[in-house]
């Protein structure tokens, strides 16, 4: 049994099935990537896992317990957190103030170290809305990591970042997942980045799992090559 699992997850918007019968299993210290073209259901998937949207069918289990209908707050209090594709920070507050605010709710043994790992010391006393976009993405990630969550669901942490920022962000994800023994789910557009970073990969297409497994196996999967990676892969 894995730490965090989804079985048969299905989300329908009216007649439209955005996600059909998706399974996933996350393990501590490993990064599981989810890729897929636009409209593949990646964001819906992370919303259903994080409690932002109730799945129409299927279950989410955590430590063996069915948490499908648990609230967002319950999940956070029990060690499941997420980040957002559209940067979701507290723009009017300084970086330090907002991290401390979140840390008051989610006991963080080493906030300074987290700030250092993500390279946020220099902007700590700046107002978040005034710092560079790429740095705001790191603040978003920091907010999700405070309180040593055991499961972190990352929704396109590299969205809008330039290439080298992207590489650094994925390095952070990799490092933090190992160091903090976090089970990480990484939904990402940057396919090469995902192959470089993740221990296992699931490819979604039109809301269904196209392939899932180790990066090398997924990369070689004929279905994936045909539908998604194209001749470049």
């Amino acid at each position: 049994m894995s730490l965090f699992e989804a079985r048969g997850l299905t989300v329908r918007y009216g007649a439209l099935a955005a996600l059909t019968d998706v399974d996933i299993a996350l393990e501590p210290g490993l990064v599981h990537g989810v890729i897929g073209p636009n409209g593949a259901g990646k964001s819906t998937f992370i919303d259903a896992l994080s409690g932002r949207r109730r799945p129409s069918q299927g279950t989410v289990t955590y430590d063996g317990e069915d948490i499908t209908r648990r609230s967002v707050r319950w999940r956070r209090a029990h060690g499941i957190s997420r980040s957002f594709q559209r940067t979701s920070v507290f723009s009017s507050m300084t970086v330090r103030d907002q991290l401390e605010m979140v840390a008051r709710r989610n006991a963080e043994p080493d906030l300074d170290q987290l700030v250092e790992t993500l390279g946020l010391e220099e902007v700590a006393d700046q107002v978040c809305g005034e710092i560079a976009y790429g740095t705001q993405r790191s603040v978003d990630l920091a907010i999700a990591l405070i309180g040593k969550p055991r499961v972190v669901l990352l929704d396109e942490p590299c969205a809008g970042l330039v290439a080298d920022e992207s590489v650094r962000m994925l390095d952070h994800v990799r490092t933090l997942s190992r160091e903090r023994d976090v089970a990480a789910l990484l939904v990402e557009h940057d396919v090469e980045g995902v192959f470089r970073t993740c221990d296992t990969i699931t490819v979604l297409d039109l809301g269904k799992v196209l392939a899932s497994g180790e990066p090398a196996a997924v990369r070689a999967d004929p279905g994936v090559v045909r539908a998604y990676l194209g001749s470049a892969a």
């Binding site: 994080s50 967002v72 707050r73 956070r76 209090a77 957190s81 997420r82 957002f84 979701s88 920070v89 507290f90 723009s91 009017s92 507050m93 907002q98 605010m101 979140v102 709710r105 989610n106 907010i143 405070i146 309180g147």
Partner: peptide, 15 residues
């Protein structure tokens, strides 16, 4: 202030 700035993120931060 946190709620004013970003109510959803406050909930996702456990508040």
């Amino acid at each position: 202030e946190g709620i004013r700035e970003n109510e959803e993120r406050m909930r996702f931060s456990g508040y």
